[in-house]
């Protein structure tokens, strides 16, 4: 089974971000980068499928030169080879623009399965994976926690809301967006890193792929979340106060 995993490099979870002068993106030089969390789970799923059914795992990632470290991490964990789409305008692309890049880069691979994280930790569109499936013309399923290969294709477990799960079957080839937490992530090893040095990493430029960057959606501005603290004192007797509290938690704060 040939599996392609699309991986994005995103600012580290702890990164203290500052908005740049354009107001449309963050100061990239000030943060450290890591593999997008749900993409790490997509990679883990791919590696486990390969271990069970043999085949090949190819990772693809778009971004500037720094993306190389994340690609090498994926190779170190067990991916067989990689495609690096060299581009510096990823933040300006919408989900369609990113998906086009990925689709053109992997079209010739004729993979059995394309995996990616369900959304990126930076932009969080949650659409790149499904648009990619559409561009490749394969069926897709989202929010996948578990993948099982069957004779007919795949049986997958999706996470729904409120603790519900759905099990569906779909034929191959297919594309899945993977939810975090379905598997336990393996760790990168020294031996893996050394082996990764000898693995193929093909670099293609965005221009060569001919994928248009003309966005259909444009990012106007970004801002840091505002901290809000407000205190309300609920008057009245305990019973009435409790009812008011529940109502406020349900409909104002929406945590119940």
């Amino acid at each position: 089974m040939k599996i392609i995993v699309a991986i994005k490099q995103v600012p580290e979870r702890d990164a203290q971000v500052r908005i740049d002068s354009s107001g449309k993106w963050i100061e990239e030089s000030e943060v450290q980068y890591a593999m997008n969390e749900s993409d790490a789970y997509a990679l883990e799923e791919a590696l486990q499928l390969k271990e069970k059914h043999s085949g090949e795992v190819v990772v693809v990632s778009a971004g500037p030169e720094r993306v190389g470290t994340t690609i090498r991490e994926a190779l170190a964990k067990g991916a067989d080879r990689a495609i690096h789409i060299d581009c510096s305008d990823l933040a300006q692309r919408d989900a369609l623009g990113s998906a086009r890049l990925l689709a053109e880069a992997i079209r010739g691979e004729n993979a059995d399965l394309v995996l990616t994280g369900l959304q990126s930790d930076d932009l969080g569109y949650g659409q790149t994976g499904v648009i990619l499936a559409e561009l490749l013309g394969v069926p897709h399923a989202t929010l996948i926690l578990h993948v099982e290969k069957t004779d007919a294709g795949l049986k997958v477990k999706r996470e729904l809301e409120a603790g519900w799960f759905q099990e569906i079957e779909l034929p191959l080839p297919a594309a899945l967006t993977i939810q975090s937490g379905g598997n336990k992530l393996r760790y990168a090893t020294l031996m893996g890193i050394k082996k990764a040095k000898t693995k193929e990493m093909r670099v293609v430029s965005a221009a060569d792929l001919g994928a248009a960057a003309t966005p259909v959606a444009t990012l106007q501005s970004i801002e840091l979340p505002k901290k809000q603290r407000s205190t309300q004192i609920i008057e009245g007797d305990a019973k009435a106060a409790a009812a008011t509290l529940v109502e406020k938690l349900k409909f104002e704060v929406r945590v119940l």
Partner: peptide
């Protein structure tokens, strides 16, 4: 560990935490 033959959920979690984060407790910096 360097060859990946040690399989331990807690160990892997600690290694992943320190690959990405800043501290062994896995708390935000």
């Amino acid at each position: 560990v360097n060859t990946g033959t040690w399989e331990d959920d807690y160990g892997a979690k600690l290694f992943n935490q320190l690959e990405r984060g800043s501290n062994a407790l896995g708390i935000s910096a």
